[in-house]
């Protein structure tokens, strides 16, 4: 299984990527929405799941979510917002815009594993 982690914090990207690799995922990383789109276009693949931070420079995660959901090439990609935004209206907006799950920071590896399980992606190995 392949995962894309988009977060402007290198430290947080690294923590999330490590958790995913320990679950058997191969992981690519991007530092903002624009970088993620460029990377996807360059590689031509569709990761099984993308984990998007909300607040990032250049292009935020909510905008990236909208871009991904507009493009049929990424229709099979499951998208999880992973963010410190914990207000109900933000969560509602993300789900309405096509996010499949929402994980609030901070979180434990178990919480990430549970959320991937909800998306039917727990058996990565």
């Amino acid at each position: 299984m392949r995962a894309l982690v988009v977060d402007d914090s290198r430290a947080i990207r690294s923590v999330i990527s490590r958790m995913l690799r320990e679950m058997g995922y191969s992981v690519t990383e991007a530092g903002n929405g624009r970088e993620a789109l460029d990377q996807l276009a360059a590689t031509g693949g569709c990761p099984d799941v993308a984990l998007l931070d909300w607040n990032m420079p250049v292009m935020d995660g909510f905008t990236l979510l909208g871009e991904l959901r507009k493009d049929p090439s990424y229709a099979s990609m499951r998208i999880m917002m992973v963010t410190t935004e914990t207000e109900i209206d933000r969560m509602q907006a993300a789900l309405a815009a096509g996010a499949d799950e929402y994980l609030m920071k901070p979180f434990t590896p178990d919480a990430l594993r549970d959320k991937l399980g909800i998306l039917g992606l727990s058996q990565a190995a």
């Binding site: 914990t86 207000e87 979180f107 434990t108 399980g117 909800i118």
Partner: peptide, 20 residues
């Protein structure tokens, strides 16, 4: 707590059945 609702609870159900 936030950590508890993060564990295993699908986001749509959190929004539907919980109040902040």
């Amino acid at each position: 707590t936030q950590l508890e609702v993060n564990r295993g609870l699908p986001a749509p159900l959190l929004l539907k059945y919980f109040d902040r």
